[in-house]
């Protein structure tokens, strides 16, 4: 009961700190919809009879990038769209937990009498915050699809592979698998990274935790490796698109396998963390 009360307080207070980021997220998703609409115009003229779909739009935003093969002279195509979306998702949950600890949260912590409760409430808050960011993103995507007269299907139009610069597809793209790739995996990877950030922020400045997330995402874009978490958040790196791509089930297990130890490590570490003033934090 006390945990629910405590989480409720966190939710109320935390939302006051992230609403501006949610606003930025809304603008970002709206701009990306507009960008997609603009880019797809040319292809629609080249492919008469085709139209835009929700799947096209989602693939454009959450698809990531094709495998990069570093060869002499090859320029790394920076996955701006995907990276912006993922980076902002990780950023949304970055500041509140630790900032709160040096403010009103310290009073609440002593009142609730439990460090475990405090950390679990913050971990839950991070998960909820990232989830709401994605929920908001999907609302904008749905509205964007509606505004551009797109079909509400997951079918990928033929022009999309050209738009995403994919020259060959490994196998037939299964809609259900693509739906999972575009909805579940980016969210799960972002939630996992938010837990990693929370845990790291007990030892270093929160912004450095975010830098770690960015490094994970960028290195995932550069190396198509199953060991780099970000690969699972890119539908274009899935085995059905890329013959030596990643397997989504492994991605789910990878996230779970990282998320739980992160929460546990944070919980244990917070038991021994000295709560100093703002001037004294590491």
């Amino acid at each position: 009961m006390k945990f629910i009360k405590f989480f409720h307080l966190d939710f109320r207070r935390g939302m006051h700190t992230v609403w501006r980021l949610y606003l930025c997220g809304t603008v970002l998703f709206a701009l990306l919809c507009l960008d997609f609409w603009n880019r797809s115009r040319i292809f629609l003229e080249l492919y008469p009879g085709t139209s835009r779909s929700l799947g096209d739009l989602a693939l454009y935003i959450f698809g990531g990038m094709k495998k990069f093969i570093p060869t002499p002279g090859a320029v790394f195509p920076f996955p701006t769209v995907w990276l912006l979306v993922m980076a902002l998702a990780c950023f949304s949950s970055l500041w509140y937990p630790l900032e709160d600890l040096y403010g009103f949260g310290k009073t609440l912590l002593t009142a609730c009498q439990s460090r475990k409760r405090w950390y679990l409430a913050k971990a839950m808050w991070c998960g909820v915050t990232v989830s709401l960011y994605f929920a908001l993103g999907w609302v904008v995507l749905l509205l964007g699809c509606l505004a551009m007269g797109g079909k509400f299907t997951w079918t990928i139009s033929p022009y999309m592979m050209e738009l995403m610069e994919i020259t060959d597809v490994a196998s037939t793209v299964e809609e259900w698998r693509l739906t999972l790739q575009l909805t579940l995996l980016p969210w799960l990877v972002a939630v996992t990274l938010s837990q990693l950030q929370l845990c790291l922020s007990l030892w270093m400045q929160p912004v450095l935790g975010w830098v770690v997330s960015i490094v994970v995402l960028l290195s995932s874009a550069y190396y198509a490796s199953p060991f780099l978490l970000g690969n699972y958040a890119m539908a274009l790196r899935d085995q059905q698109v890329l013959s030596d791509g990643v397997i989504w089930q492994v991605g789910v297990l990878y996230c779970m396998g990282l998320l739980l130890p992160c929460v546990l490590a944070g919980l244990i570490s917070f038991q021994h963390t000295d709560i100093l003033g703002k001037e004294g934090k590491s």
């Binding site: 403010g103 310290k106 009073t107 002593t110 009498q113 439990s114």
Partner: peptide, 17 residues
């Protein structure tokens, strides 16, 4: 025990919302 069981605290500056 993690904290004193019944404690009121004003430490550094008061931090409210």
């Amino acid at each position: 025990m993690e904290f004193p069981p019944s404690m009121g605290l004003l430490i550094e500056n008061p931090a409210f919302l």
